[in-house]
Design a protein around this nucleic acid. Structure first.
Lengths: 204, 204
DNA sequence: TAGATTGTTAATCGATTAACAATC
DNA sequence: TAGATTGTTAATCGATTAACAATC
């Protein structure tokens, strides 16, 4: 995504979801105004975003839906299905493992890992739950570059290091702690408690 | 949070978490430089943020830890424990129900609601899972103003309306759809699949 | 007093919005 | 041609960073 500002990149999945959603208008073309209305964004903003990744809009006509889907998908690097590993097969980990929504963006969690031998025997959502020791080999064999951390805070740093050692390049961290930045590795911290706290901050 | 810019508000929980975390330096005072180092932020940014909610730093000394915790807590509206209801007791819902991290910010999920009679009998994490019909009465009796939507996309709009009817003022939505904005109600959309897609966008 | 650390004012940067030009 | 819709250039807005003043 070189050249695509972060706020724009964050809107791209919304456009894609809307364009692919059934039930909406199934016209062959669509205008920036229609997208803006549906997603409650400014129409100039939508046009600017789309110009950045597509630039294939036609005055008086709008955008060809299928083309636009192609272009946004390309900008998001969607090609085939990228596989991710999940570390931590607790409740949150299992919720992610069963969640079907990633496929829309060409992503899937292909295996989970846990230190708890009790969880290791479980196959969840048709996916294996393996012991931590199996992580390096699994990642190498499957060419995994995406890792998800769903363990308690105390274990996060260690899991992070293990993922780095496996050559992971993108980390989605659900533990409420910052992870040491590493050149060439992208980290997103998903601090659930903090998110709810901010949402509720203005309540009184 | 009138007067506090959103980016600042999003950093406040990080400061609070760091200040309250055990194991760190347990000094009575702390400097903006120390906080910045730990959280990997700019020190001027930390000082500006803290000046906005506290303004009680002393040159040469820093901030008194306990005071700072008080001030940030106040800015985040933390007082006692605010209760939230959760709609949708699937895997994600249960993960949230069991998650213990909300307490740090004075929040707790006190009950879940589901249309599936099978889920209704379960008591999860010592919290009741009730039928949807019980929602209005529960919210009124407990003075609930926070609602969490953890149902599939198709049901989200209806659940949202139900929550609005109950007088909910803050909504945390995990379904991948935008919800109609309503005056006086804050909504945060937590689109998990989109988040992972953006994280992985730059992979190749 | 001197030095460390906060707080503020000004400068920079980036994103959004508005106005308008281009074009099918 | 006229009108609708895109795309671009300029203006606005807000946040971050840098420089410096204040003060314990």
């Amino acid at each position: 995504m070189p050249g695509i500002p972060k706020p724009v990149a964050e809107r791209l999945p919304l456009y894609l979801h809307y364009l692919q959603s059934p039930g909406g208008e199934e016209e062959r073309t669509i205008s920036s105004a229609a997208i803006a209305r549906a997603l409650r964004l400014g129409e100039v903003q939508v046009r600017k975003d789309l110009a950045l990744v597509s630039g294939a809009g036609k005055p008086k006509v709008g955008y060809i839906r299928s083309e636009l889907i192609q272009h946004i998908s390309k900008a998001l690097g969607i090609c085939g299905t990228k596989k991710a590993v999940l570390v931590g097969a607790g409740r949150l980990g299992q919720a992610l493992l069963y969640y079907g929504g990633f496929g829309e963006y060409g992503l899937s969690i292909s295996a989970a890992f846990d230190t708890d031998p009790g969880k290791v025997t479980v196959h969840a959502a048709g996916k294996p739950v393996l012991p931590m020791a199996a992580l390096p080999n699994y990642c190498q064999c499957h060419g995994i570059r995406i890792g998800i951390i769903a363990v308690p805070e105390a274990g996060a740093a260690q899991v992070y290091q293990a993922l780095l050692d496996c050559g992971i390049k993108a980390v989605w961290n659900f533990a409420p702690c910052r992870l040491e930045p590493v050149e060439g590795v992208t980290v997103r911290n998903e601090n659930m408690a903090a998110a709810l706290a901010v949402l509720c901050a203005g309540l009184d």
